[in-house]
Design a protein around this nucleic acid. Sequence first.
DNA 1: GCGTAAACGAGACGGTACGTCCAGTCTTATA
DNA 2: TATAAGACTGGACGTACCGTCTCGTTTACGC
Lengths: 188, 188, 188, 188
Amino acid sequence: MPERRRGAPRSEAARMRILEATARLFATRGYDHLTIEGIAGEAGVAKQTIYRWWRSKAALVSECLLEGMLIPDRLLIPDTGDLRADLVDWLDRVLGVLAAPGGEGLVRSLIAAATEDPEIGRRLRASLGGDESLEGRLASGVAAGQLRADAPLAEIGEALVGAVLLRALGGIAVEDADAERLVAVVLG
Amino acid sequence: MPERRRGAPRSEAARMRILEATARLFATRGYDHLTIEGIAGEAGVAKQTIYRWWRSKAALVSECLLEGMLIPDRLLIPDTGDLRADLVDWLDRVLGVLAAPGGEGLVRSLIAAATEDPEIGRRLRASLGGDESLEGRLASGVAAGQLRADAPLAEIGEALVGAVLLRALGGIAVEDADAERLVAVVLG
Amino acid sequence: MPERRRGAPRSEAARMRILEATARLFATRGYDHLTIEGIAGEAGVAKQTIYRWWRSKAALVSECLLEGMLIPDRLLIPDTGDLRADLVDWLDRVLGVLAAPGGEGLVRSLIAAATEDPEIGRRLRASLGGDESLEGRLASGVAAGQLRADAPLAEIGEALVGAVLLRALGGIAVEDADAERLVAVVLG
Amino acid sequence: MPERRRGAPRSEAARMRILEATARLFATRGYDHLTIEGIAGEAGVAKQTIYRWWRSKAALVSECLLEGMLIPDRLLIPDTGDLRADLVDWLDRVLGVLAAPGGEGLVRSLIAAATEDPEIGRRLRASLGGDESLEGRLASGVAAGQLRADAPLAEIGEALVGAVLLRALGGIAVEDADAERLVAVVLG
DNA sequence: GCGTAAACGAGACGGTACGTCCAGTCTTATA
DNA sequence: TATAAGACTGGACGTACCGTCTCGTTTACGC
């Protein structure tokens, strides 16, 4: 017999309306113009309903990130068998987001959110190409003999993603060969 | 006879009190608990005096950064002739700041400031080991034949500094061999 | 055959816990810091159980008043045969409550409750010395020939109780001879 | 040389807009539907400007009362030389306010305000016929030999005004002869 | 006894207002 | 004209309760 809490159960509808409103406002206004009050209004929800389930704006964004509502899914790493080409391809697309109108704002907003909650930082690393995709692809490269077995995969990932963040922060223009050069650096 | 504006000249004393107050509060409270009002109070200055000379909190922090009031100066890169050893040494010290109490907060605060002003991002990259020191050291490594002449120095620097930022964001604990591994990644 | 509704009957235990909690909180925190939520918590009862049986905080207080849970019962009027002495004695004790620590707060709270529900006003007038006691005592004075037969008993009572309320509202300190003077005014 | 504070002086325009808005909303909605936010909105003023100068809703109402913005000024006591007739006349008008539509609400609201701030209680007693008018008229009655020289004027006033308040609280309907009876009670 | 309808505890929900903080602008008097 | 002081509008903060609502549980009548 399962222990059941009493009282009305949490409203899934409200939860989704809140997350969707958060994602919508995050995309349009950016992280630091995001307000709890604005989200509540957009979601048609009482502020208290937000505070009941999330400790802060950052926690809300973190959950959105986890649900994949903030980062476009076209940033997955392909696996054609050629590790270097796949990395360059992927990095080109990531840097392309930076170059796109609003794209830099998106990444900066994600970083801003991460400065308030380490969990976001970790999820950002994972989502932008961390455990599931980037490191997985690197591991697959190891299996294919395109990378030494003892290569520090985590550090390679960090170097790539970190370089992207740094560019977003600095507002540095992206050139065509950048992806190639970066990949060359970390793959040797 | 030089054209001179009339009225009182800008008070250098006020400017310094403001910058010092900013640096002090930045270090103790972090960037997002930094307020113009708080700075004005701490500096014994009217809010308007701040708004007259700086456009925003970020601009204020940016100037502090430029004056070297935010980042400890022990992060310079040595030049013993051995590029790899020097980089590991420097990176160890940088990561050591992250591990030190308050150190992670400092870096996160710097990143938070950078998300509001690209100029801060660029200065951060420069200060944390950019143009003056890191890339200079790499160039010196090229001259010493320890790095290929066509090595993409900027990208190597980005990868290293970016990895540091990413770790600060994720609150990832630092291990002893991390510096060595990261340097190995970017130097091949 | 009596029409009987089905389902569980009203819980007398819950009713009493609610009234007692109300009286307790009314006495300690005063009427305007009284909240339905607080009462429910104190009584170990669901909010809905309160709303099911009472329309408002004021109705709740009104019932407490009716049950004699709010006003100390030492305020009854004696009947020694000497009307004037009895009134002075009683008024002395009433004003004594005002002067006692917390006593003024009690009366002010009762007045505050009365402003939200005329029924409370009427019960207050009755409880503080209205129909059952004060006017009864006055009528007994008429019978004893100490008051003219056509004396406006209701108005005499109103004047006395009203003066007490006014003093409570104004926070006016009470002197020894006040009771005597007031009685002298209304008895001529 | 007068000690002068620096900084902008208090805005008299804002002060008046706030007091007028308070009086307007007090009259239309009553004391307990009065909100600081509502007043600020009605007055076109920031909430903080209210909190800067008044500690509470009650303090605001108290100042309105002092400025004579809440109580109609037709409640002054005449002095025709006949004390009893003048009192009956005045009391008739006061009770008339109670009987008028909205009048009872006004008095109840004033009482509600007084329960939160003794100062309001005192001003209420004064305004409704206290020191300036009622007691003055009584003193004049003493001079005219219509009242004994040692008559407790304060208590007579309290009894009259208190009776009015009590009626307002109880929602008791007013009859024609009530004023006469009440005056008869207190004048003997 | 057994179904069922109401009462009950718990507590989530959309709201309103609270009192505080700070942003950025403005108005003074002084230097 | 720059400054210290500080009042001003505006807006978001996070909290406290409101009164309503849904849950699952308990209770006692009427079949």
